[in-house]
Design a binder for these strands. Structure first.
Lengths: 167, 167
DNA sequence: AGAATTTGTTTGGTACACCAAACTTTTAAG
DNA sequence: CTTAAAAGTTTGGTGTACCAAACAAATTCT
């Protein structure tokens, strides 16, 4: 269970994402670093790599360095993109703190497929694109969730502007 | 792995949610109905119920009808709330079709904790609360993602209104 | 009530994902 | 170049979640 378009388990998706990050950081991923970054033991990594190797997603010979195959890299990048988009939404729209956003994005990235993430991208773009929204709009949102209820004063003003505009 | 504040696996969270739905629909949950609704065999349900029983979340004696304990019901309602909020966002804000929204919400409900869902609620409220957003704003969003790029005409007008308003 | 059907349980087995720890290979130091 | 350390692998074991199918209890039908 719990795949999402990739046909991979959440766990294997996480391995690919981690390997992609390490490939960029160093040139190559080492078992030890994967293990550390994911908080598992080295033995678990070996098992996962064997599985990813059989699926043609990593180039893996025992005791060799690890790199992603083109197919593996494509999936890894897709997962990373999901993560980044979701994190952006959580941190910059919902204004969750970075740690929360990071953690939650890690879980959500396995739950949303391409179509959903694409739509979320459009949504975020839209917020920043339409001039009546943008930065100010997010700030108003912060106001909205931090003060309950919102100030009637400001609401009346906003509502009047709204009326003016549409007549 | 893969719990979220409840200390339960995704699977057990799903069982609770299903039992809650069946309790409302009928008076009581039957193993057969749980199995059908979740797409598993009856044997799997028995196992899950034993586990939920030991955790004090369902009242369960072999061959008896199944009801949630207060503790179980509280968790089930929390999960259901997450599902509903997320579905609302996906369907009515992102405008994903119902099936997509339903499916994705089913997975996301295990990935978002209370704080994140609460903030999402605030966000949705905000969209519908502030008069400069609301229904019209979602419609403009639909425009935004269906036509690419958006019509410059409408943008100029919108931008002018924006300028007028802030001076 | 007694047989047939439905519903629920149990058992044995699979797959996944991990750990612990023994083991092997590679790398680094002396 | 030999040995110590580090890195990687393997094996056996755990827990979860499921299926398949034999089994038991409860319902329903007659």
């Amino acid at each position: 269970m719990s795949e999402q378009e990739t046909g991979l388990s959440e766990s294997l998706e996480d391995y690919l994402e981690t390997i992609l990050a390490l490939e960029k950081e160093n040139k190559v991923a080492r078992v030890k670093d994967i293990a550390e970054m994911m908080g598992v033991l080295r033995g678990s990594v070996s098992g996962a790599l064997k599985s990813l190797g059989e699926k043609g997603l990593v180039n893996y010979e025992p005791y060799s360095f690890i790199t992603l195959t083109p197919k593996g890299k494509a999936i890894a990048k897709e997962i990373r993109r999901r993560h980044e988009v979701i994190h952006d939404f959580l941190a910059n729209v919902l204004q969750l703190d970075t740690a929360q956003a990071q953690e939650t994005a890690c879980r959500m990235e396995h739950a949303m497929n391409r179509a959903a993430v694409d739509r979320l991208v459009k949504f975020i773009e839209y917020i920043h694109y339409c001039p009546r929204t943008g930065r100010d709009w997010i700030e108003a949102f912060v106001d909205f969730y931090s003060k309950t209820p919102p100030e009637p004063e400001q609401c009346r003003r906003c509502l009047k502007e709204w009326e003016d505009r549409r007549t």
